[in-house]
Nucleic acid binder design. Sequence first.
DNA 1: TAGTGGTCTAGACCACTGT
DNA 2: CAGTGGTCTAGACCACTAC
Lengths: 253, 253
Amino acid sequence: MGTTQLETVPEPKYWQLKTVLSEALDSEFAVGEILPNERELAARFGVARATLRQALEQLELEGRLQRRRGVGTTVAPPRVGVAVGTEEHAWPGAPSDAWQPVDCALRIPPAAVADALGTDRAERVHTLRRSRTSHGQPVAAELLYVPASSVPDLTAIDAPSGPARARAVLRELQRLELQGQERAVELGSARADDAKELDRLPGAPVLVVTTRFLSAGRTAALSVATYRADTCRLTFSDSGAVEIHHGPERQAS
Amino acid sequence: MGTTQLETVPEPKYWQLKTVLSEALDSEFAVGEILPNERELAARFGVARATLRQALEQLELEGRLQRRRGVGTTVAPPRVGVAVGTEEHAWPGAPSDAWQPVDCALRIPPAAVADALGTDRAERVHTLRRSRTSHGQPVAAELLYVPASSVPDLTAIDAPSGPARARAVLRELQRLELQGQERAVELGSARADDAKELDRLPGAPVLVVTTRFLSAGRTAALSVATYRADTCRLTFSDSGAVEIHHGPERQAS
DNA sequence: TAGTGGTCTAGACCACTGT
DNA sequence: CAGTGGTCTAGACCACTAC
């Protein structure tokens, strides 16, 4: 108690700005509505544009705003609940899985992936690209790594690459018996290729869902799925009906 | 194919910087080691400090760096795997749960919480604060909302607030039979109180885990747990042994 | 008190979108 | 093409930590 310093240390301007804007979004704007441009907003609040942008960045991170270069800043709809339970991240290729094959090739995976698969770091593995959409919007991009040993009967008759090859690999994978899964979620930033598929800029915040599929005591496949962190809420329940949102929402007219 | 524009559009400087720094972290630095300060790094790479900071921010977001005001920038250890399966987010108060009660009071919850609980928005509910640590470091702060109807036999004998009260509420909660849980994960930014508990600045990126506990067809309790996104990887498997990391790691001497 | 990261400014130019 | 958000600069000062 010897310290006499003020308890009301001044909050950063961008933090106050964020609060003010957040309240304005709740009360004065409808979902989809376009905000004034950054230069005007900055002038209106009497701050530098960089400071305003710091506030907007936070609001975008929280899923309240959506910004697009050349277009403007719009009020984002509430986050979409995306189910990532055992149903939707099922044994890849199962009829119930939510993914659409895009491409497939034999590639040398990142060292960390090779280690998780238990393969040699110089060994090529089947690398599938798949995508997932929700309400017509892309929500996730996946890289699925399948070591050759998991699909021993894959014939050369099938196409060497492309979606057809992807389907062939998935079909073969189905012949293995799935023992269990290990899943992890962490924050990441979108690599250039994922960003493109998710319609975001490189470096955009994403939720990375890593799933290890176990069969016969081995890692039969490894999935690294990249979800848009701004628009997605990952749900782990059966119904996916956790209805949490952050304030009043209205539809743009 | 009509477009003749260069495929090698210049990447942003901060993106290249991030790549360079990332590789340097893998090969030339040990975990815990202190990097040169921002002004020197900026000068060394020939960029403005703001640009360098943009690269550092990304690396911190990815859990590669840790920055602390007044101290410096250090190389972060690999992310800690934190289990958030049904064991660790068990029926609150069960012997197996990973949380430490901190405080408890009767408060009017946020409107969204009241809606999820099915209580009136003006009705006060038991609001417990709990914290979770891993390897001696705080990893998560939780707010647990328990409507009075879930703990009808709570006696006035117990302390009206504080950790003792929290334990009393949890004890009563145990008398209900847990039917199931619904869990969701999304990205958020730390509120001031959470930030303090997590030893971060307000606005720091966090993974928000919302759990709805169901009993007798109702929401018996709602947990909003805030995990440090920079240091945590949330695991959903039994063993929690998904060993993914991003490069060679050495210990600082 | 010296040194660190955090905030803020007032500009400039670039890349992209729509018309 | 005009208008938007994205990047970048070269400063300044502030809040915090450790000595």
